[in-house]
Design a protein around this nucleic acid. Sequence first.
DNA 1: CGCTGCTTTGAAGCCCTTCAAACCAGGTGG
DNA 2: CCACCTGGTTTGAAGGGCTTCAAAGCAGCG
Lengths: 239, 239
Amino acid sequence: MIDKHLLKLRARDEISADEEAAIAGAMGVVRNFPADKVVIAAGEEVRASTLLIEGMMSRFKDLRGGERQISGLHVAGDFLDLHSFTLKHLDHGILTLTPCRAVQVPHEKLTEITERFPHLTRVYWFSTNLDACIHREWEVSLGRRTGLARTAHLLCELKVRLGLVGLADERGYALPLTQAELGECLGLTPVHVNRMLRELREAGLVEFRSGRVTFLDYRRLQDVAEFDPAYLYLERRPR
Amino acid sequence: MIDKHLLKLRARDEISADEEAAIAGAMGVVRNFPADKVVIAAGEEVRASTLLIEGMMSRFKDLRGGERQISGLHVAGDFLDLHSFTLKHLDHGILTLTPCRAVQVPHEKLTEITERFPHLTRVYWFSTNLDACIHREWEVSLGRRTGLARTAHLLCELKVRLGLVGLADERGYALPLTQAELGECLGLTPVHVNRMLRELREAGLVEFRSGRVTFLDYRRLQDVAEFDPAYLYLERRPR
DNA sequence: CGCTGCTTTGAAGCCCTTCAAACCAGGTGG
DNA sequence: CCACCTGGTTTGAAGGGCTTCAAAGCAGCG
């Protein structure tokens, strides 16, 4: 159940057997969700954090006029609202994009971890800081990259993040999102996303069709995206 | 020296005398910086976090073509690269926007805090999570708000954040940034920032001239910005 | 087999950029 | 004390990237 989560943690730090046991012991109820379901509403009081086992969820905020901005995507193994442990209620909503399976981790268990496992606490703190790194990179995309580069960048980011948990390889990966949802991530209209995807396809860089991303030339894709995975902190840090 | 910092922490949580002493005891060397100086370069190994005492700094990333995106602003009392404690090197640079004074807090001191003060650890963890909340709100601005709303939103955010440490009131606040720097925050060109500021001024909402923001009608400004300070977590949370 | 939701394409328009130049304030030096 | 320089602000005009509006195409499904 927590194997993908551990894969992800261990890609960046050492996790001892004791710590692994503490994590496993913190797991609560497993729940299944259909696609397109708001799992947590913005502002709602939260008493447990959610570890995503399978599927894809997003963080989002809506504006008055109905425009939606997705501020982050989450894949299997992500502790997607670990920040709710310190925030107690979220500034944004959490929405499933696909059918999902997730475990609840009661905040008391996390408090216990902070009291008994300082190193693991730092690992989890790191993990929320990593979310912030991704937010910053998205700010760069939204603020400065063209629609084309922005689209390419997201496809590169997901390749790396899904690759960490064995859900992507050099050929491509499953991406069960609509173009409208991509647009909500990218700050673009569905129409323009469609045009950018066509341009990427016609340039021989990537193809996105029927829920699957297929790389045609990943090297050049990275280049048009100006994608540098450094912000994803893939290196293992000494304890 | 850490009074503004404590003001900010205590606006959101209780800090005991012991914890305050631990914070005070963690302070290291005080340094002064001129304006427009890169204090920390992206990727550089960092062994201390920086608490800003006076002035304004920013987090930024540059693209190949020289475009710069500022992903966050920091004011007096902010622990501006507390996240470097867990990250060990930053994904972005840190730049002074004005002359600044700051204290270094060695990471060993922070490790000690995580080992001896679980509650304070959670407070600091919260603090980096709050940075992420601000990043997310900026993503919404950059992705979905018009230039006008985006500009208005930033001026509202700074009013609240500076207000917390006594540097802003209902009338306005000092904002020693150029329009070009505002543009780097807002994902706009300096020219367009200028036009948006004019529009806000002519609409009787705010005025920004010679380094000072003056509110003409804060209520209506919040309204065009669709500014809701909830994401700044201003309420005091029970221990 | 027709509905539904997603994708694709076209055409027009607008927000923001780009380029260019004038304006203005503050600081420096003759 | 004014001329000059520099960095920032302001304005105009033209252009482009993305949106908006509209409709057709397409796949999956009851």
